[in-house]
Amino acid sequence: MSAGPYNYSYIFKYIIIGDMGVGKSCLLHQFTEKKFMADCPHTIGVEFGTRIIDVSGQKIKLQIWDTAGQERFRAVTRSYYRGAAGALMVYDTTRRSTYNHLSSWLTDTRNLTNPSTVIFLIGNKCDLEAQRDVTYEEAKQFADENGLMFVEASARTGENVEEAFLETAKKIYQSIQDGRLDLNAAESGVQHKPAQPGRNTQLNDQQANKDSCAC
């Protein structure tokens, strides 16, 4: 079968990184399936998810790579950074160690992706307020100092999950619009698929009117 016409204009590649157990797979699951995955097993490898979203009227297909967080896989998961347009860097608001490791994740991201890669910091598990171990303020400061986008989110309640994925896409799309992101670069993490004409939804006029209404 041949590759057919596309109904999206771009493909963005995302990676999700961060320590083991911070909830990377749950965030992905919440985003693609709108469900919380309780008892999520450790990811042994790299999970893959996809969803089509809408940014400024453009349909964008997100290809999301959810990496294993275990330290022993770190060397292997580094292979997956290449060509990511967006990196979601996740820590657990209830475990300070996962926050402390952020600089090392950030170093990897900066070294292994291109300068235009959008890095979005997510403090997951913000629903567990009683067990909070990292304050919003210090994480916000870390994000600001390093030029990262930031939200606290909860894969359990879904709070801010959608936002994090969408805001990242918006930023990437903006970079394309501004010409900061070179689509021709192999490692941009963005593929452009020219949309076919006449594939709008039913609400839009599918054909140009032969006659216009005029009186």
């Binding site: 596309y6 109904n7 297909k61 939804t201 039913q202």
Partner: peptide
């Protein structure tokens, strides 16, 4: 199979959406 390959399902997608709608 083609869904897994990520090509044809996209081609089909808009048709399927219109049809489902």
């Amino acid at each position: 199979q083609s869904i897994a390959k990520g090509t044809t399902p996209i081609a089909a997608r808009e048709s399927v959406i219109r049809y489902q709608m």
